[in-house]
Design a protein around this nucleic acid. Structure first.
Lengths: 217, 217
DNA sequence: CGCCAATTACGACTATAGTCGTATGCGACC
DNA sequence: GGTCGCATACGACTATAGTCGTAATTGGCG
């Protein structure tokens, strides 16, 4: 018995996915999550054979969340479900460790095929895009590895840095001394191979696709 | 006699544009530029009725370059030519003051129509996208105005900040004292309504679409 | 248990960022 | 020609960022 986890903040789209899968692949158990925290909870509790992950979930921070989950559960295959058609972005998604990319516009047949292929251990990309996305972005892959090597504390600090907070404010939020925040910041610099906060923020903003100021709609 | 300036770093695409336009609109004079500096030079020397601008030109920094040109030559209509299909991005382009958006996949007939419409004072968008892009992004429009209000020196400093340079390094590049760089930085903060370098870098990175590390190809 | 490695934590110190006041040059406009 | 506004320029000062050394804690592992 194989178990799928559908992680998408849109309940209607979860329903649609469930419908598309139950038709072609009846021998499945399905779980659902609406944000990154509950996704991690379920992955901790249950034995999941494949995660269908929407990048724009609350708390996910887009590629950040994918890297995060890949680090916590390296054995769980992940297929990213997204509305984007940007081949560069899809290339980044694959470089960050996804085993498949399913466009939100895909037919239920394609979706079922994709899920089956990934469950069989294959990599799956939409047919019309597989040409332009075949090679993974080495540079970005290394970047994703570096970000994945951050400890939980360092990860949180980097998230706050990306929001433009001062070390003092980060310390207040995490309830630690400013000196400790600075130590984390220095450790992040070393792991990412950089030497100041500006470069760290640039890297972090590459991993978050939605500009913070603009609404998703 | 109307004069067009084609600004695109790809000579072949300049040729293609010229061909598409000379067929339908023979009464045109055409100039060409391959990077932002020569584009500005030509706009200074010649009387241009319409600029066809590719965002990914060398030195352009994408939306940064559009805002820059809109500020230097507010009376010259600009139509952006780009390969993107991202409606959010197109909305930003229009909010930054472009009068039209021409996809690189457009047919020569559509291109000629678009050019004619903008020369007539209309706004032109690809037919299939005009629904989703009709409203301009107020927030982003204000941001573009703020960036446009930067003086030339401040603009240069912001570009260097976005590249992760220290104030000292920026001063060396511009041949001014570090104290002067700091004064510019403070002025930038006030104009953009922010109070530290991290937030400035985030804003600047929103205006540059290509991640610095990745090649365009 | 005892050991080691990694993480988290902090203080003291140095470097850089950012503020404020001020001076100079330059074009617009009476 | 005066003077007003603005961009540019810089120095002195304060705040924040970033480095280094060190200690307490935790989780494997023999």
């Amino acid at each position: 018995m194989t178990t799928l986890l559908i992680a998408d903040d849109h309940p209607l789209y979860r329903d649609a996915l469930r419908g598309a899968l139950s038709l072609s692949l009846p021998a499945l158990t399905l779980s659902e999550a609406g944000d990154l925290t509950s996704t991690v909870d379920i992955l901790n509790r249950e034995d999941i054979d494949l995660l269908l992950l929407d990048l724009h979930m609350p708390g996910s921070n887009d590629l950040f969340g994918l890297i995060h989950i890949r680090k916590l559960f390296p054995d769980v295959p992940v297929a990213v479900v997204s509305g984007t058609e940007d081949t560069q972005l899809i290339s980044k998604i694959m470089s960050a460790g996804a085993l498949g990319f399913i466009p939100k516009t895909a037919s239920s047949g394609d979706i079922a095929n994709a899920v089956q292929a990934i469950l069989d251990g294959d990599v799956w990309l939409p047919p019309n895009l597989s040409d332009s996305v075949d090679e993974i972005d080495e540079e970005f892959s290394e970047l994703a590895d570096n970000v994945a090597s951050l400890t939980p504390s360092q990860y949180k600090v980097l998230c706050f840095m990306r929001d433009g907070l001062l070390n003092k404010q980060i310390g207040y939020n995490l309830d630690i001394a400013e000196a400790t925040v600075k130590a984390h910041v220095t450790a992040i610099f070393k792991k990412l191979g950089i030497n100041n906060r500006t470069q760290a923020v640039l890297i972090a903003s590459q991993l978050e696709l939605e500009p913070p100021a603009t609404s998703d709609h």
